[in-house]
């Protein structure tokens, strides 16, 4: 059986995200002798590429809160957005508990300047370190000195970075409501840190790409035989 795989870059040149997932999965599938054709968009500037979004999105909000807004880079493109309420974390107050706590903000993006301004407004720049984009090896170095990996983003197309953290034995917190409390608890109780490290590591064992590739391979074969 042959497979078609769609992505926007191959091989991935940055750590994390869909690119890495595509690369790892494609490599694992190839190991299982699946003939794979990887399709990347060739942007000429004017053509539009229709994308099929396969993920199931459950929006816990009433229809009338949905708003049509303009796409950030192109006002002609309208997208439907559901406003989400994000509780402020008040990091500024909580660091008082742990004056030596340091937050490393790894990566880059178009909201980085605003994040830097926000940290400065909160007067916590000396405890927030903005590294810019990290290469895989640098990510490993950062994780090696990290006590807790915090993922406050409300959405991520493919959250590979928490898996990187788990693989490095760093506990991951993603629930934004529980964020400050969870961080404080982890700082307070090193025992918990060690315990979460162990648990998380065990979880990653089942997350290896080989398994994912096997499942996919299996699924496609089942589908293939059902259809034929």
């Amino acid at each position: 059986m042959g497979g078609l795989m769609f992505g926007w870059e191959f091989p991935s040149h940055i750590s994390g995200g869909l690119g890495t997932a595509c690369l790892c999965l494609a490599t694992a599938l190839k190991d299982q002798r699946v003939e794979l054709l990887f399709v990347v968009p060739q942007a000429r500037g004017d053509e539009s590429i229709p994308l099929i979004n396969a993920s199931v999105v459950v929006v816990d909000a009433s229809q009338n809160t949905a708003r049509v807004t303009e796409e950030r880079w192109n006002p002609a493109v309208k997208i439907t957005a559901v406003p989400a309420e994000i509780k402020p974390y008040s990091i500024g107050e909580n660091t008082v508990c742990f004056p030596d706590a340091h937050f490393i903000v790894a990566g880059s993006g178009d909201l980085l300047p605003q994040m830097m301004e926000r940290a400065a407004y909160r007067k916590i720049s000396s405890r927030m370190h903005f590294t810019g984009l990290l290469k895989a090896e640098q990510m490993r170095q950062v994780l090696s000195v990290t006590q807790v990996y915090v993922m406050p983003s409300v959405s991520d197309p493919f959250g590979i970075t928490p898996l990187d953290a788990v693989q490095a034995g760093v506990p991951v917190i993603g629930d934004i409501d529980a964020l400050p409390d969870a961080i404080i608890n982890l700082f307070r109780h090193n025992v918990l840190t060690n315990a979460s490290r162990g648990n998380s590591k065990r979880e990653t064992k089942s997350l290896i790409w080989k398994r994912a590739a096997t499942s996919i391979n299996q699924l496609y074969h089942e589908l293939g035989s059902t259809l034929s």
Partner: peptide, 15 residues
């Protein structure tokens, strides 16, 4: 604990 000096420079460009 001093992160060992990285031989690789961080690319500062946004993606």
């Amino acid at each position: 604990p001093s992160i060992e000096k990285s031989a690789v420079a961080v690319a500062a460009e946004p993606r």
